[in-house]
Design a protein around this nucleic acid. Structure first.
Lengths: 219, 219
DNA sequence: CCATATCTGTATCGAACGCTACAGATATGG
DNA sequence: CCATATCTGTAGCGTTCGATACAGATATGG
């Protein structure tokens, strides 16, 4: 069996003996369980099955490895976000997003701990760049939701007094809170119940309680 | 000026030169900003204004200091929880709780970072006892809310199909998510908007949609 | 087959970590 | 005023941290 190598073009020199995505997945588990500062280089190299010089040649340093892990994490969550953003209406977006996050938070392939890497691996840190990097990755999801809701609002799929930014922020906050509950050992059923309550806060499709100024809703 | 000392009875020996609550507040700031593992002993002793032997004599070790800080944190939040639990009805409990948490999360006395110590100081850690200790402290608040809602339900202040455990879990999850947003730099206004959405999910007082079995609601 | 380039494994670097031995300082109890 | 007890400050303990120097291994390009 040959590992997939990240080198895009044929280059000279001894080839890399490991698959980048593979070792990133293994490093992800360590960062997830121990947090950024709690994950030692020796634990990381042991889990990744490589030696320190290989790690430093490939990722620069510990922070570089962590940032590569975050990118890998996003990639593994992309299919969920794609499915969420493809939902026909904003309420379904909200439901798929919260249910998806709750599902991922409790089912982490038996390898990773319950919860979310972007929440529990370093909210406070000796190196302030780590919390900031995590915040940026979380904000990325929030922005995707907000832009979706802005489109929905323009399309008349959200009431005129709904605030896309607030709704996106609410969903992300709820999702992060769910992840904290999951990390503390909450069951899938408990998380599902939380999601149901959270969704009952969702504003329904605009009701005809005012004079209809413009009608640009498309089915 | 004389510092308050924690020694309850008069004892022999050289008296302690520092106020326990005072140094715990200073240590709290370090743990809050850097997380449990990111807070080094030298940073802690510098901030506390004492030397390592005094720290170890008083708190045992780093984990003992952290646990003492958590107790101190709870003590400083107790007045909020008292006010929340003294609210006349469950909806007001929910509102005061979320508004109170959001308020604390952004206004941390200019000394502590935005957010919540119980959420951001060590969700994942090299020593698993730290996330567990944090989870227990958070669960304490959730239990207080749940018991309050159970009493409300027995008193008819919550609808018969409301689940006190779910509502408490929802509020705590929402509060924790709000703290994550605050830690990432969310403004007080943004958090307030989230709280408003979150409260719109709250089940209202029981409506007379069924046969009224018992009536013991008071005003 | 050789020059070049890159990766791997061993062995280890200086720095920072959490923690403590020890002697001096300062209180109480008699 | 002395014996005892506890706390303080200095100085440094052994370990682990993140990161690297270096030599051998293995590919490409000519």
């Amino acid at each position: 069996m040959r590992y997939k190598n990240s080198r895009s073009a044929v280059k000279t020199g001894r080839p890399r003996s490991f698959c980048t995505d593979n070792v990133l997945d293994r490093a992800m588990t360590v960062f997830w369980r121990k947090g950024y500062e709690g994950a030692s280089l020796s634990e990381l190299t042991d889990a990744m099955g490589i030696n320190p010089p290989s790690l430093y040649a490939a990722f620069g340093n510990k922070e570089g490895l962590f940032r590569a892990v975050l990118e890998r994490y996003d990639a593994r969550r992309q299919s969920l976000m794609d499915r969420v953003l493809a939902a026909p209406d904003p309420r379904t977006v909200a439901r798929l997003f919260l249910e998806g996050v709750a599902g991922f938070a409790v089912d982490t392939e038996g390898r990773n701990p319950p919860g979310c890497l972007l929440v529990q691996s370093g909210l406070s840190c000796s190196d302030a760049g780590i919390p900031q990097a995590l915040a940026e990755h979380r904000a990325e999801k929030e922005r995707a939701l907000r832009e979706r809701f802005e489109r929905d609002k323009r399309a008349g799929k959200l009431s005129r007094d709904a605030n896309p930014a607030t709704l996106a922020s609410y969903l992300v906050a709820m999702a992060n809170g769910i992840c904290v509950q999951a990390a503390a050992g909450a069951t899938a059923e408990a998380l599902h119940d939380i999601v149901e309550v959270a969704l009952s806060a969702w504003p329904d499709t605009p009701k005809k309680n005012r004079t209809i100024k413009r009608k640009n809703a498309a089915g």
